[in-house]
Nucleic acid binder design. Structure first.
Lengths: 240, 240
DNA sequence: GCACTGAGGATTGTGCACAATCTTGCGCGC
DNA sequence: GCGCGCAAGATTGTGCACAATCCTCAGTGC
């Protein structure tokens, strides 16, 4: 028919709705945050991400809103979305939550004492030892996060595992923001002891060790001395 | 000027972007789910909600996706969004997570033993007693959820409080789906005892009571006998 | 010098007219 | 009667052209 309805977008061959693109964009951003390629305060504009990922505004908004819900991104109305920059109070709450939740995951793993799970944890430890011997604090903490996430997954509870995954990610932001006076002296032996007690089904001791371990990470940070965040340090973006 | 740019939407006075409308829609839906006005399997179409709430599709999608992340709504591709209908395994994980997390909140409240917090909890108990005397199981469990949420808020940790709020909401779905053979015999005295031990700073006992309490709620449900969910029982919608 | 205003910029929300994809149901051939 | 296929329906994603809102930064009056 001779309808003149060519107003908007007729015969656009490039707009196929791909639902899981939002998930992909989310994963990319999440990994970039955890790997500290995206630093706190970095600006994330819809249009910029549309161009970067080649997806529509809706999927970008979906990914950003999920990150916002996970407290990794903060929306400032009519200003844009920014990578979150937790303050000292929020940091303390994150660590407190980690103590509470990871006590639960540790208890589950220690009670089960599944040899297969223990083996996976030992494998993770191997890699951690390798990096620790080279003295890289940041990588050590990063892999430490991997250890905690793995432990949560092995607990068999998806709810707790998801929470630990998020809290580890937020810890990554926190480590970036507060001066790190970490003496990794006796710090590295905790994971080994933890595994051993889990293997032997020594539940109480394992849980206690996990709590101490997390609190020790917190104490290694100077929570009263936050690195100033300019909230417009945009240019770091040009790296991914 | 005499611009003829009336292609799309010129001078629409009704399209002012109100950012917090997404939050309002989310709250309405969340409350409806917790209050069991929206039952598991109910279909939630974007367009229907656009007309119901008078907001744009984007904000509706935002609200729905948040509910989806919170596991209260499930997206089925090209079919629409549905109120979640947890299976037995998911139910067990929710209860396990509640045991772990609420052990943490109880510990915090009992350690603080703040008289003001205790008073608030007592006030909640009063209302629960009133409803329990009338024998309403559903309302009792609903208010029981309120007690747990309040406890989590009083623990002073927003992370844990948010999680408990979500887990309580999911429990509301679960209670709806599984045959409830609840004998609320000794069930109702737990909250009273719990408060007392919190008041006296009896941390270990309080935590143990909370764990038992949650497990008792779980045991009162027949998790192996799920009520069939038609996943198209739409008409229940006409009630809000 | 200083406060205030106003124009421009930046950013997100909206309605619209599709496009893509899956489900459903009906008719047809056998 | 029965399976099969194709058309119609339903639902969400997309690009576009705005609208609304807030921020920024000049320029002006006092």
């Amino acid at each position: 028919m001779s309808q003149k309805t060519r107003l908007v977008g007729v015969m656009n061959e490039r707009n196929r709705p791909r639902t899981d693109d939002a998930e992909a964009a989310y994963q990319h951003l999440f990994d970039a945050i955890v790997d500290q390629r995206l630093l706190p305060g970095t600006k994330l504009t819809e249009i910029a991400l549309v161009e970067a990922f080649g997806i529509g505004r809706r999927m970008v908004a979906t990914a950003l809103q999920r990150l916002s819900w996970e407290k990794l991104v903060v929306f400032i109305p009519n200003r844009g979305a920014y990578i979150a920059a937790p303050d000292a109070d929020e940091a303390r709450q994150v660590f407190a939550a980690r103590v509470a939740i990871e006590a639960g995951t540790t208890e589950a793993v220690a009670q089960a004492a599944d040899p297969k799970a223990i083996a996976k944890l030992r494998e993770n430890i191997e890699q951690e030892h390798k990096l620790r011997d080279q003295g890289y604090i940041r990588e050590a903490i990063h892999l430490s996060g991997g250890f905690h996430t793995l432990m949560a997954e092995l607990s068999g509870n998806r709810v707790l595992a998801d929470q630990v995954r998020l809290l580890v990610a937020r810890t990554s932001l926190i480590v970036n923001l507060f001066d790190n006076q970490l003496g990794l002296a006796g710090w590295h032996d905790h994971h080994d002891d933890l595994i051993e007690h889990c293997e032997n089904g020594n539940v109480e001791t394992a849980v206690g060790l996990m709590r101490e371990h997390i609190l020790e990470i917190q104490d290694a940070l100077a929570l009263d001395r936050r690195r100033p965040v300019s909230f417009d340090m945009v240019r770091v973006f040009a790296r991914g």
